[in-house]
Amino acid sequence: MDVALATAWLRAAAGSVTAEADLLTRLDAAIGDGDHGVNMRRGFTAVVTVLDGTEFTAVGDVFVRAGATLISKVGGASGPLYGSAFRAFGKALPPGARADLPGLAGALHAGLEAVRKLGGAQPGDKTMVDAYQPALTAFEEAVAGGAALPEAAAGAARAAGDGARATTSLTARKGRASYLGERSAGHQDPGATSTWLIFQALADVTAP
């Protein structure tokens, strides 16, 4: 992954969370406070503005800046979580203009660790972790199996989507949805859904 691909990914993610803002908000209205779509749109719009105004030489910097921007602009639970994830992801990438596949896998792992450290969520708690964790596993397995980036990204996106859909039956134990107790079951988690959109954006921009 080089700087061009990195910015293309984030722009695609921005387009996707903007296009799906209503869906994310509706999912959040059901078990949260109905702002996830607006939050993500605001954050990624700011990210695009930063990308427009900045020349990057190191690929990691793209994500570090994106993460910092999300932390500054989003608020809520998702701002610090996604912001920390992207920052950790960017910092874990090898220095320089390009990252190879194992480097990407390692950085994705660091991103998830940041989310888990800040939010304390376990898989099964009905959060973005439930999309991120399977996506990471799929990505790592694909890389281990010798796949190229398009294939690994496609597998990660598929796994994220499956993971997001699987949150529907879960009872939330983190975030606002946990206040609903068992009433949270039956609804798909908004954060897991936006995580899927972000992985899908990577799959889209790398697709041959």
């Binding site: 406070d33 702002d35 607006v38 605001r42 932390i71 500054s72 989003v74 608020g75 809520g76 639970a77």
Partner: peptide, 11 residues
């Protein structure tokens, strides 16, 4: 004050 129903940002 953050956005409506959204906590403020660290900045």
């Amino acid at each position: 004050p953050g956005e409506v129903f959204t906590s403020p940002v660290p900045d």
